[in-house]
């Protein structure tokens, strides 16, 4: 209970000798919903990539539930919900196929689904109300349905850490409400959820923790304590437009 789920210790990441993330340190306890807030290029996706093991930090280390990234991958601990722009929506796969991909890590080499895999897929699709749509090609879905499909895949993966990249961009109110409800439910079962976004308004409604990031982690902790005028101004580099709109959203 309340053990550290994501442990990031003084992580520095560089791309072509440019520092993308400097000395980032962050400990998230199991059962937290944490918003990751920063401008474009502030290092949000770099942090995600580091947690998923796609970029190797030049210094520092990251542990997931005390395991190295590699061990965490093999144990299917980290599930990722991509931004809609990252997905090839013309790919000939159905909703069911996509969600089943969340189970590959549990299957044998041929990826033949067992009954527990089918059950996990069905349960996940039912939770996001997409079971009826399971045979649809993904290209025929609405924005919200697309997002729910990939959310269902993350659910089917049954990881303990869930990373969501701009989950509410281009989705309908129904999907947003459903996802927030599900995220809160997941956090109650000791899942750790990290949400990258620049939609500050939604963050304050359901995230209990916030990380402010701008090339390094500026502040993190309880949403109410971290969302101060000074912190936001540092996060958004004092850009007046961004800052005042951010503040308005918080208020």
């Amino acid at each position: 209970m309340n053990s550290v789920s994501i442990d990031i210790e003084n992580v520095t990441v560089t791309y072509h000798s440019k520092v993308a993330l400097h000395q980032a340190a962050l400990q998230l306890k199991a059962g937290t919903i944490c918003g990751l807030v920063g401008m474009n290029g502030a290092g949000k996706s770099t942090l995600f990539k580091a947690i998923m093991g796609f970029v190797k930090p030049v210094s520092g280390k990251i542990l997931i539930n005390g395991l190295t990234i590699r061990q965490a991958q093999k144990s299917n601990l980290v599930a990722y919900v991509p931004q809609s722009e990252e997905v090839d929506w013309n790919f000939p796969v159905s909703v069911y196929d996509v969600v089943m991909m969340g189970r590959y890590g549990y299957m044998n080499l041929l990826r033949v689904p067992r009954s527990c895999d089918k059950k996990a897929v069905r349960d996940s699709l039912e939770r996001v109300e997409m079971w009826q749509m399971r045979d649809r090609p993904i290209g025929e879905l609405s924005g919200g349905q697309k997002k729910r499909t990939f959310f269902a895949r993350a659910l089917a993966q049954q990881g303990t850490v869930l990373l969501l990249d701009e989950p509410f961009a281009g989705v309908d109110i129904k999907t947003e409400k459903m996802m927030i409800t599900l995220l809160v439910e997941l956090s109650q079962t000791e899942r750790t959820i990290l949400i990258s976004t620049h939609d500050l308004a939604s963050i304050t409604t359901f995230c209990d923790q916030v990380v402010l990031i701008n090339r390094s982690i500026l502040a993190y902790g309880k949403t109410s304590e971290v969302f101060t005028e000074e912190n936001l101004s540092r996060t958004f580099g004092g850009a007046v437009g961004d800052f005042s709109s951010a503040k308005r959203q918080v208020n």
Partner: peptide
Amino acid sequence: AILQKDLILFCFDSTHARSIGL
């Protein structure tokens, strides 16, 4: 035939493929 599922996932979503340790 053996790698069909993995290759499809590789073509479709290599990020997810990597994140589950493929």
